[in-house]
């Protein structure tokens, strides 16, 4: 196996149990929440879209922040170059972002299925369809990538340049997240945020900013000194 794939598979292995816990928690929360809500009233929203849709990208942001501080030295200490580490991070990040972005429409569909099994589907529930699912995926994926890149780049800035340097780079590092939050999004009623730009332009801007910040992340890390952990 090539070093970068080795890094990617090992990162995925490390985060598999964490991600499993995350999704189990999501499913339980939404399951309980939706049951309670349906008892009281006819839900006019999808709890899955509210909770899981948002949590998925935040989770990726958190993982992004942990990547450098937690894993860089661990891999380099086992003979992996920074380059292969970064390539492995990119592969694993892409895989996780796609899986998470798939989980949002799939969960929405599952929620709808369970509701319809429990009784007639509430009138104003935001129903999904293959087309809607695709749009949901299309909105969540760029946002997930933006959060991941932003988290990684922020922590890399502090890792490499210390507190002040890290702060100075912060405004640049958050750009993709600002774009994703402003231009993209699925609301709880199944509506799509296209306040400022049509979807394709919004996605393009977000992805472009994500790419720029990912490049910044690469620049910060490609020859960085490996810091000590707590002794």
């Amino acid at each position: 196996m090539s070093p970068r794939l080795l890094v990617a598979t090992n990162l995925l292995r490390i985060y598999r149990p964490v991600a499993a816990w995350f999704w189990v928690t999501m499913i339980v929360c939404v399951g309980v929440g939706m049951t309670v809500v349906s008892r009281v009233t006819d839900p006019t929203f999808s709890l899955w879209l509210v909770i899981a849709g948002a949590a998925a990208k935040y989770w990726l942001g958190v993982v992004g922040i942990l990547l450098v501080g937690l894993h860089l030295r661990q891999f380099v200490a086992n003979g992996v170059t920074r380059h292969d580490f970064l390539a492995g991070v990119a592969i694993a990040g892409l895989v996780v972002a796609v899986l998470f972005a798939l989980a949002v429409p799939l969960g929405h569909a599952a929620e709808q299925l369970l509701l319809s099994l429990a009784g007639p589907l509430p009138e104003r529930y935001p129903t999904t369809s293959p087309g809607t699912a695709l749009r949901e995926f299309g909105h969540v994926l760029p946002a997930a990538l933006a959060f991941l890149a932003c988290g990684a780049t922020i922590s890399a800035g502090f890792y490499r340049f210390g507190a002040w340097g890290g702060l100075a780079l912060l405004p640049v590092a958050v750009l993709p997240v600002v774009a994703a939050e402003a231009l993209l999004g699925v609301d709880e009623h199944g509506g799509f945020d296209v306040r400022f730009l049509p979807y394709s332009a919004a996605a393009l801007v977000t992805l472009a900013l994500t790419a720029v910040v990912a490049l910044l992340f690469h620049r910060e890390m490609r020859d960085v000194a490996i810091r000590r952990g707590a002794a």
């Binding site: 661990q74 380099v76 952990g229 707590a230």
Partner: peptide
């Protein structure tokens, strides 16, 4: 290194 590069 004496500080060890492992996850605590």
């Amino acid at each position: 290194r004496d500080s060890l590069d492992v996850t605590d």
